[in-house]
C-alpha cells in the first residue's frame, strides 16, 4: 500500500487525463491501467489525507487568528485597560463603522495614490527594462540612477520632494512611485534577458526582427519575473504612499489614511488610529492577494510556479 505523495505508477509519462484525453493513446491506457492496479487500496486513504490537508490549511490560521483576537478582547476587559491605551477589537470595529465616512474617504485617497503610483511604475519599469535590453549602453548609463533611487530611504527624500513639488498629491505619487518602480524594473530586465539561449538562436535563424523577438520571445519569458516584481511593488507602493503622507502631514478633505493616524494620535483617539491601521493592513493583504491571483491566472498554463504537479 502506498499513501505517500510519491507514487511509483504515475511515473513521468504523459498524464492520461490531460495530455492524451480522448485521443486515447496506447501509452495513456497503459498508464491508467497501471495506476489502477498499484493504487487499488491507496486512493481512499490518500484522498482523505488530501482533504484533511486542505481543510487544515484554512482552519488552522483562522483558529489561531480568532483566538489571538479573543485573547486581546479578554485581556482588555479583564485588566480594564483604558481604550486610549489599548482599545478592544470590538471597539475598533465599532469605530470603524462609526467613522466610516471619514475613514473611507481617506482610504480612497490612499488607494488612488497607491494605484496611480503602481501604474506609473509598471509603465516606467517595463518601458525602461525594454530599453535596457535593446541597448546595453542605455542600461549602463541609466542603471545607476535606478539603484540610487532604490537605496535612498524614501523617508529621507520625501521632505525634499514635498518642497520641490507644489501639488501634494503629485509629490505623494512621486514618492510611492520611487519605491514601487525598482522591483519592476530589475525583475523585468532580468526576465527579458533570461529567454532560453537556443530559442534566441531559433529566432535568429528565422530572421526575426528585434520587435518580433521582443514580442514573441522576451516578453513572454519575462512574464513570471514581471509578475513577481508586481507582487512586491504593489505592497511597496502602499508603503511609499503611507510614508509620504506621514512626511507631508497634510490635512483637509483629501487626506489619506496616514494622516488619519497622525491626527488620531494628536487627539488621543486611539480606537480610530487602530481602525485606520486595520484598513491599511487589509488593503496591503488585498493588494497582495489580487496580484497573486493575477499571477496564477496568467501563468497557470505553463509556468512551473503556477502548475500543480501531478506525478
Amino acid at each position: 500500500m502506498n499513501v505517500s505523495p510519491t507514487d511509483p505508477a504515475g511515473g513521468t509519462g504523459p498524464r492520461p487525463a490531460e495530455a492524451a484525453g480522448s485521443r486515447s493513446s496506447k501509452a495513456g491506457n497503459m498508464t491508467s491501467a497501471l495506476e489502477e492496479t498499484a493504487l487499488k487500496s491507496g486512493p481512499d486513504l490518500r484522498a482523505a489525507a488530501e482533504r484533511r490537508d486542505r481543510w487544515l490549511r484554512i482552519i488552522l490560521p483562522v483558529v489561531i487568528l480568532t483566538s489571538a483576537i479573543l485573547g486581546w478582547e479578554a485581556l482588555v476587559r479583564i485588566q480594564e485597560i483604558p481604550h486610549y491605551i489599548l482599545p478592544a477589537p470590538s471597539l475598533i470595529m465599532e469605530t470603524l463603522v462609526k467613522d466610516w465616512a471619514v475613514l473611507s474617504g481617506s482610504l480612497i485617497t490612499t488607494l488612488q495614490i497607491t494605484f496611480a503610483a503602481l501604474a506609473v511604475a509598471v509603465a516606467g519599469g517595463v518601458g525602461l527594462a525594454v530599453l535596457f535590453t535593446q541597448s546595453k549602453w542605455v542600461e549602463i548609463s541609466f542603471f545607476p540612477f535606478a539603484v540610487i533611487l532604490q537605496v535612498t530611504p524614501i523617508i529621507a527624500i520625501a521632505p525634499l520632494i514635498l518642497i520641490y513639488v507644489d501639488s501634494i498629491p503629485v509629490a505623494l505619487l512621486i514618492c510611492a512611485w520611487i519605491v514601487a518602480f525598482f522591483p519592476i524594473l530589475s525583475n523585468t530586465t532580468l526576465g527579458l534577458n533570461s529567454a532560453d539561449h537556443n530559442l534566441r538562436n531559433l529566432f535568429q535563424l528565422y530572421g526575426a526582427s528585434r520587435w518580433q523577438t521582443l514580442w514573441h520571445l522576451q516578453l513572454p519569458a519575462a512574464m513570471p519575473y514581471f509578475l513577481g516584481g508586481l507582487k512586491i511593488a504593489g505592497g511597496l507602493a502602499l508603503i511609499g504612499a503611507i510614508v509620504a503622507e506621514f512626511a507631508a502631514g497634510s490635512a483637509g478633505r483629501g487626506a489619506g489614511l496616514a494622516y488619519r493616524i497622525l491626527e488620531s494620535g494628536y487627539r488621543l483617539n486611539i480606537p480610530r488610529m487602530f481602525a485606520a491601521l486595520l484598513l491599511i493592513s487589509v488593503t496591503g493583504i488585498l493588494i497582495f492577494l489580487t496580484f497573486s491571483l493575477l499571477s496564477h491566472l496568467m501563468l497557470r498554463k505553463w509556468h512551473e510556479s503556477a502548475i500543480k504537479r501531478e506525478n
Binding site: 532560453d196 537556443n198 530559442l199 538562436n201 531559433l202 535563424l205 528565422y206 530572421g207 514573441h216 520571445l217 513572454p220 519569458a221 512574464m223 498554463k301 505553463w302 509556468h303
Partner: peptide, 16 residues
C-alpha cells in the same frame, strides 16, 4: 528565411 530547419539537442519549445 526558412531554407534551413534546425533541431536542437533539447526540444527548445516555448513553454507559454
Amino acid at each position: 528565411r526558412g531554407d534551413i530547419g534546425f533541431v536542437f539537442q533539447e526540444p527548445t519549445l516555448m513553454p507559454w
